[in-house]
């Protein structure tokens, strides 16, 4: 995009994240908040605009205005488009057609199933596949060369497996490791990964398995408050810990089915702490001796 637009990038491209909260817009995009206030006033409402109001204003008004610096088109990029509410998607559908002469849209989404059909039919669907190991490693090697980092082959592979094909994580861990040492070996990466692990998870689960729910719950609360993790992140960590532990395969299967159930409980509005305490009591019933 930068290549296409050069210096007029900022003037002609707007990016929005669907999952942004209202506060984010108030702080970092005050012009859109003002615009939505004006449009609300026109409709005879004098409340402060909500997130949906702001999104509506952006989608309705941005494509209507002229391009700057004699660029051909303006572009509105919407990240996490699958998280947009249905009503906003409906509004988008109309403007996409009407103002296509001025403005083009790029929607980025993780899964296509949450985007309504009319929008899908108006877009060219491009599916991006995860990088292959070869491409992935060559990119990391390129970074290592340009930053003059000394890294062994095994360490590179370990980074690849740890990051689970996610470039963000791979680059981040490489950067963190390079701060500590000039020469990066496999063992050092292991150390870094261990540092990132959350110790409370293991202790919490062990206490729960032994049946001491009260103490296990205290650990759980610590995770919520001190580490400021969300319920989903904690459940993910639980899952990882249990799958890597030494319990039998049969039990692992049983637990992972149960975890998927709990994930669905957490995804809908609920008290996450209560639901995870429920999960801890479930572990206690399994009667694992370890």
């Amino acid at each position: 995009m930068h290549d296409l637009y050069g210096t007029t990038y900022k003037a002609n491209i707007e990016e929005i994240f669907a999952s942004d909260s209202k506060n984010f817009y108030y702080e970092y995009m005050p012009y859109w908040v003002e615009a939505s206030k004006i449009s609300l006033k026109r409709h005879g409402k004098s409340k402060s605009p909500s997130r949906i109001d702001i999104l509506f204003t952006i989608i309705r008004n941005y494509p209507k205005t002229k391009t700057l610096d004699s660029a051909d088109h303006k572009i509105l990029i919407i990240y996490e488009a699958d998280k947009l509410e249905r009503i906003i998607q409906q509004a988008l559908r109309r403007t996409m057609e009407k103002y296509s002469r001025i403005c083009r849209f790029i929607l980025v989404a993780n899964s296509v199933s949450n985007i309504i059909d009319p929008i899908r039919s108006r877009c060219v669907n491009l599916k991006l596949f995860p990088l292959s190991q070869k491409q992935f490693l060559s990119k990391i090697k390129y970074i290592c060369e340009s930053e003059e980092i000394n890294i062994t082959e095994n360490a590179l592979k370990l980074i690849y497996y740890y990051s689970n094909n996610d470039m963000n994580i791979a680059i981040n861990i490489l950067e963190a490791a390079s701060c500590y040492k000039k020469k990066i070996t496999e063992n050092f990466i292991y150390e870094m990964i261990k540092k990132l692990e959350i110790k409370e998870i293991g202790e919490c689960l062990k206490l729960a398995i032994s049946g001491n729910i009260v103490d296990a719950r205290n650990f759980l609360r610590n995770l919520f408050i001190k580490k400021s993790l969300s319920g989903k992140m904690i459940l993910k960590a639980f899952n990882k810990f249990l799958m890597e532990s030494t319990i039998t395969e049969e039990l692992k299967k049983k637990i992972s089915i149960e975890i998927s159930k709990f994930d669905s409980y957490i995804s809908v509005p609920s008290n996450n702490e209560l639901q995870l305490s429920f999960f801890l009591t479930y572990l206690a019933t399994l009667g694992i001796k370890d």
């Binding site: 990016e15 994240f17 999952s19 942004d20 909260s21 990240y79 996490e80 996610d166 963000n168 994580i169 981040n172 861990i173 950067e175 963190a176 701060c179 500590y180 870094m192 540092k195 990132l196 969300s230 992140m233």
Partner: peptide
């Protein structure tokens, strides 16, 4: 450029690691 959830899970822990070491 990424969503809040991605920042918390994929970036913040590493930023913390980097900040812990004086460099």
């Amino acid at each position: 450029k990424s969503s809040p959830e991605e920042i918390i899970t994929k970036h913040l822990p590493f930023i913390a690691l980097i900040l812990k070491k004086r460099s």
